[in-house]
Simulated assay, not measured.
Amino acid sequence: MTFGERICRLRTARGLSQEELAAELQVSRQSVSKWETGGSVPELDKLLRLSELFGVTLDELVKGAPAPEDGGTEETAADGRTAERTEPPAAPGPARRGPDGIQRIVGVVLLGFAVLFGMLLPLLGVDIAVGLLAAQPFLLCGLVCLLVRRRAGLWCGWIWCALTGAYLRYATGISWTLVFQTIGYQPEWNYIRLAIAWAMLAALALLLMGTLRSFRTLRIAPTRRRLILLAAGWAAWLALPWLVNKAVFVPWIQALANNGFAGEWRYTLANFLWSGLRFLALNVLAVCSLALRRGRRSAGGD
């Protein structure tokens, strides 16, 4: 039995199609087809992943050598004596570790600041709502540092950016979208507000670049279904804001104007959440687009 036939047999024994196996290995279906027909062979990392996925050793996968049924470490030599059997070492799996010591310390310190702001500020005469608002970023970032193993700094950055943006939007009406009024900005509108808006936009751009860099090794096999979903996602991201603005926010602001802007905070909160959702969708779409591009290049090199 050839190497490709063994892959085909192991794949069908587990009820996997070529496309499903390709998705597990983050390669194209054509790559799997070439392996099974002998047109090419997988790289070493793909061989390790195949052995883990099928539950066989590398010798069984590559050479077809059967594993010992008793799992022993000895075999009988030609002269009747027992000889020590050496098994190939198992492929190391990804280490499953929690946050490291420094990250846990940072998490505990941040939780301490959250307790400090949440309890001390009200004791000093500050409104309790202000104390809880000041404690939120420390509380959330502390929990992230204690519970999340990877990219804790990135998620903390997004938390600080989101909460700061929410506060500025609610307390001062400043949003990064104010940069679109830069050309016609009037001095009486206060240039400090415009500078803050540009700083918010720069922070969002840096976080977006940091997110893309953090996921720079992610590869997604470019199947037809995934490409269609990605194209639909980009189309929705471009079209939905116009529809939502026309159907929801414009009538809402008109109703607020007729009622003396009573309950304006609900509009402000909804507008902020919608903007945040759009930016989150932009991050996801950008990461998936680059991952599919890398997957296409990886499949082309197989």
Rank of each mutant, 00 (worst) to 15 (best):
D70N: 14
A232M: 14
M200K: 04
L139S: 01
V27D: 00
Q18Y: 10
A22P: 00
L273R: 03
R11E: 00
F279W: 14
W198P: 00
K246W: 11
V32F: 03
R49M: 05
E52P: 09
L21F: 09
Q103L: 07
Y185N: 04
R29S: 09
S275K: 06
V106S: 07
W274T: 10
A202V: 09
G263Q: 09
A134K: 14
F215P: 03
V287E: 00
L120K: 03
G101N: 07
A247I: 14
A203W: 14
V250A: 14
G263A: 08
Y185L: 03
G39D: 01
P241K: 02
G276W: 07
C156W: 02
M119S: 13
E264P: 08
A78F: 05
I7H: 03
E20N: 05
I196M: 05
A67K: 13
W242A: 12
E75T: 15
L124A: 08
I253S: 11
L16T: 01
G55C: 07
A239I: 15
R213P: 07
R151G: 03
T177L: 13
R293T: 10
V32K: 01
I128G: 12
V250R: 13
P187R: 02
E87R: 15
L110E: 10
P66Q: 03
Q26C: 11
L133K: 14
A236E: 02
K246R: 11
L168I: 02
I228K: 10
L208S: 08
G165M: 02
I174H: 00
I192L: 15
R14H: 06
L168V: 05
R294L: 05
G184E: 04
L58A: 14
L140T: 13
P99M: 03
L243T: 13
S214E: 07
F261K: 00
L280D: 00
M1Q: 12
S40P: 08
C141H: 02
K63L: 09
Y167I: 13
V287T: 02
G112K: 06
L147S: 06
R49V: 02
L116W: 15
S298T: 09
V62C: 10
R96C: 12
Q254K: 12
L206H: 11
I228R: 15
V144L: 14
A114C: 10
F180I: 13
A91E: 09
L133A: 12
Y267G: 04
F180S: 13
R297L: 11
G131W: 04
A197N: 00
L133P: 06
L121E: 02
L227F: 07
A78R: 12
A90K: 15
V130S: 09
E52W: 13
P99R: 00
G300A: 13
V41H: 13
L25E: 00
V148I: 14
G55W: 13
V244M: 11
D70L: 04
W198S: 01
A203Y: 10
K63S: 06
P88D: 13
V62K: 06
L16W: 09
